[in-house]
Design a protein around this nucleic acid. Structure first.
Lengths: 342, 342
DNA sequence: TTGAAAGCGCTAACAA
DNA sequence: TTGTTAGCGCTTTCAA
């Protein structure tokens, strides 16, 4: 193993000089800098991470807490994780993977052992047990998702309220009078997950504002559940013509079920989804949708966190604006089929 | 921050004694041990990870290299990752997440900076650029997947050859004479990914052994691609009655397409999948399938790796036996519809 | 059974 | 602009 001392000897300077050349924390003459760099290359020197962390109290590692729970859509999570790692590397940091099942304990552990400098927490609930801990812990953090009380915390997420309102507006603009929100599995609502609740909130607000009629229902992931849920919806509201779906795994089955029930999309039923763009584009017909910009959010989360580590004051909350892409699954509301003899 | 010195003072012993109590590396009188533990609890002591790593040359961190590439099925990867993290924690290790786009460089980096003690590498190609590096690097590793030349490396994977053979045997036992392997996107074959190649190998071996007629084709993930591929298959072989699918994202579309083409499953066409159990069970009809035991493989991988770190000689290669679960999508071959006037 | 002390490889005052 | 030096908090020899 080659140490900073080896490099110093090779370059004919002090170890501290090598350190300063590498960190840029003090000015170095051009000549010295070159000699040191040459020696670093010649010897293939790479600083020892533990020694550096011990001396500087900075591990250059971020923790990423990923959820392991029911109802989470995996590909989106993976996009988050990938964006977090990639961005962290750009800022010369690495990422330690924690699973949410370690819970608050895990956060305490990595903080107290100084394993990580900061933490990215995904899948925040409205009343999340980790929130009070994070407030107390003196561990810089960013939450992907908003707890109900975000006081003192840095949060970022898609504007789900706005996303739902966009969907309602689009349907209302097309003349739809009776629409429904086909949501996540009920477990997700029960644990008070922010994004699901806020989408519902936006849906209600939009429906009220536009004076249209709105139904809401959770939906489990199994094929049968989708069929039952849609049938129930149509029983409750036979003249339903618009659907907003926030539940990626049921999108395929849903389109099947509609076909099976003889409802054409978009002629008889307009379908909007809140989901990843590639999922929307992979369907037939291609779905009009509000994208979940996982990559952008992951990247921005890390940038905010790195900023915090550098002493910058981050905004308390960042809502990434929702954008609706109109594709093939939404169209004008069909004429109501009323009994002509009435 | 509370250090080992604080604990030592509190317990009235030397720092080294605290260290030995915690590591168990030398015998300690019961009384001392108790006093030290009491002090650890009282002060809430947690060893500093960097200091420990620096002094012991052991970081207690494993790297996990996950693929980011086209054609990989995300949920299965996530199951691997989860199993790896969970198992690592059981052995008091943490997991650093690396993305495959850092390539061989990333491995060199974490090794040379002593960030990790060992590495788990997923998605191994037959001719993987990381393989020679791993052989040279003096970084204990385990590969999930087999390169063509696994000499000197520790590998583990599902027995994909056996998996394909099981499928062929099952179909042949049911009287199917003309069957096809509907594989991964062609990019996966082109990069010479082991699991895809070995499945094909097993399929060929099975077909030869059983004297049935076998077709093979890659398949892209888009809906249209599935339709085209199946139509091509039926054009090439109108009397095709059995399908083995190794491509999770197309499973839903495939069943659609068969319905659309008027082929009932399993009456007209038996379908077997090599995929996660929950995917197989989520389809209608429920698919007979060979499961990909991601959790088991991830766990075993970590256990082998921890063993290596403890100086145990691991087996060179571990093939997890394939198991076929018969569900509703496979049945007896239909009677060939031949012209009765022939 | 325990303690003292010498590092592990680096950073960051402090000095020059 | 650079060098000297004192730690960072732990492990592990060596000595008792």
């Amino acid at each position: 193993m080659v140490t900073i001392g080896d490099v110093a000897r090779h370059a004919g300077v002090a170890a501290s000089t090598v350190s300063y050349v590498l960190s840029g924390k003090r000015s170095i003459s051009a000549e010295t800098r070159q000699r040191v760099h040459a020696s670093v290359d010649a010897l293939g020197y790479r600083p020892n991470a533990s020694a550096r962390a011990l001396a500087s109290s900075r591990s250059n590692v971020l923790a990423l807490v990923i959820p392991l729970r029911a109802g989470m859509h995996v590909p989106v999570m993976m996009q988050f994780a990938t964006a977090v790692v990639t961005t962290a590397r750009r800022y010369d940091h690495d990422v330690l993977l924690l699973t949410a099942d370690e819970g608050a304990t895990g956060l305490e552990r990595v903080q107290q052992s100084a394993l990580v400098d900061a933490v990215v927490v995904m899948d925040i609930e409205l009343y999340d047990e980790r929130v009070p801990l994070l407030r107390a812990l003196d561990l810089p953090s960013i939450l992907i998702g908003f707890p109900l009380d975000a006081e003192g915390l840095t949060c970022i997420d898609l504007d789900f309220v706005g996303a739902a309102e966009l969907c309602v507006d689009h349907l209302a603009d097309l003349g739809h009078q009776r629409i429904a929100l086909l949501g996540t599995p009920s477990a997700v609502y029960e644990r008070q997950t922010g994004f699901a609740q806020r989408t519902r909130e936006g849906f209600r607000a939009g429906v009220d504002r536009r004076g249209v009629h709105g139904l809401e229902t959770p939906c489990e992931a199994a094929h049968e559940a989708v069929l039952e849920t849609v049938e129930q919806l149509l029983a409750d509201e036979p003249e339903l013509t618009g659907l907003v779906v926030q539940n990626e795994p049921i999108i395929g089955p849903l389109l099947d079920v509609l076909r099976q029930l003889g409802r054409r999309v978009p002629e008889d039923m307009s379908v909007l989804a809140i989901c990843a763009d590639d999922v929307a584009e992979g369907q037939r017909p291609r779905l009009s949708s509000v994208a979940i910009p996982a990559e952008q959010i992951g990247q921005q989360a890390v940038e905010l966190l790195i900023g915090k580590l550098d002493g910058l004051a981050p905004p308390a909350g960042t809502l990434v604006p929702a954008e609706l892409t109109v594709r093939e699954s939404s169209g004008p509301a069909p004429q109501p089929v009323r009994s002509t003899t009435a």
